[in-house]
Each structure stands twice: as C-alpha cells, then as structure tokens.
Amino acid sequence: MIAAENVFLILLAAGRSERFGIPNKLEVPFLNKPLGMHVVTAFENIPFKRRLVVTDGCKLDFISHHFEVVHNDDPSSGMSQSVKLGVQCAKDEGAEAVLIALADMPRVTAAHIYRMLDAADSADAVVASSDGEKPSPLPCSGASGSISC
C-alpha cells in the first residue's frame, strides 16, 4: 500500500478531442458541471502530496482546486507527451510515486483511487485499472472495478 500523502497526482487534460468533434470536450457541461471537473471534485478530499494538471490551454480553473499547471505546447504529439511532461515535473519535484488520471473520466471515484493505492505492494509497483481482462484507464461501465497489478 502507498499512502496518498506520498503520491503526486498527474491529471491529463490536454488533447485534441478529435472523436468528440469540438475544440475542448473537457469544457462541455455534463451532469451540471464541465466534464473535466468531475475527476477534480471526485479527488478533492484525497490528500495527494501534489496535484499537477497537464493541459494545453483548457479554460477550466484547475488552480483554484490546488493544481499546479504544466503546459503541453504540443498536444498533437499524443498522450505520451503529456505523460512525459507530468512525470518529469513530478520527478524534478522529488515525487516518490505518481498516479496518472484522465480528465475525461467523469465517473471515476475516490474509492477506486484508494483501491489502486492499496494494491501498490512495493516501491516499484505498477498498478492499473482493469475491466477484469485487460488494463484500461478505468473499468468499463458495469464492470466489477477490479484492480490489476
């Protein structure tokens, strides 16, 4: 198990929204708030050591939710560029561990994150969400919410 207090949250909020067909899907209202704010509010009571958001200029106010903004100048290079930027920033700031979350996953819960942290059984553990068969950013709708290591 790793304590949230030792983890840097890296929220990925940069992208082209190509499948969505609009400039920034994170700003679109979903259940009475912008899509990209659901993860932010779901995690607000988790005592992460630091909160980083990698964005490409999204207009959402991450700063008032205690996030440090890391700007991705080249979101067209893919999600890996955002991961690299977030991890490098966390590494530069002395992170012991990171948790990478996607800003376009409105149904993720704090309970799911705590199960992931509980599954980390060593300093070099890699833990991922799973639909029970394959790793994925978050369990599919209706899945058991299992965690795989």
Rank of each mutant, 00 (worst) to 15 (best):
A103R: 01
E96I: 05
R51I: 01
E18T: 13
F8D: 15
E93W: 12
S129C: 13
V70P: 05
N72I: 12
I46Q: 13
H66S: 14
D124R: 02
A3D: 15
V54R: 03
G57D: 13
P137A: 10
H65N: 14
L117T: 10
A14F: 04
R51E: 05
L12F: 03
S130C: 08
M1I: 10
G145F: 06
E133G: 11
T109V: 06
A111Q: 13
K25S: 02
R50A: 11
F67L: 00
R16P: 03
L85V: 08
R51K: 04
T109M: 05
D121S: 14
G94M: 09
A128I: 03
M1T: 07
K84E: 12
K134Q: 13
V69K: 08
G86S: 05
E68N: 06
F43P: 12
L35A: 00
A101K: 07
I46L: 15
H112D: 12
A97W: 08
P75S: 14
L138A: 14
F62G: 03
N45C: 09
D118K: 10
I147A: 09
A120L: 10
D92L: 14
V98A: 07
A120E: 13
P137E: 15
V54K: 01
G86P: 05
L26P: 04
F8G: 11
T41G: 06
K84F: 08
L31M: 10
R50C: 07
P34E: 07
S144Q: 12
L31F: 10
I100C: 00
R51H: 02
D104K: 00
R19Y: 09
L138P: 06
A110I: 10
F48Y: 05
Y114K: 14
P137S: 07
D92G: 09
F48A: 04
E5T: 12
N32M: 12
V69C: 08
V70W: 11
V87F: 06
G21V: 00
V54I: 05
I63E: 12
G21S: 01
F43R: 05
N32C: 12
L60N: 00
P139R: 03
A103D: 04
N72A: 10
A111P: 03
S17H: 02
S136A: 13
V127K: 04
A13D: 06
A111V: 14
M37E: 04
G57S: 08
D56M: 01
S80P: 00
S129F: 13
K59N: 09
L85A: 04
K134P: 04
M37H: 01
F67R: 00
L9N: 11
D118F: 09
D56H: 02
S122L: 10
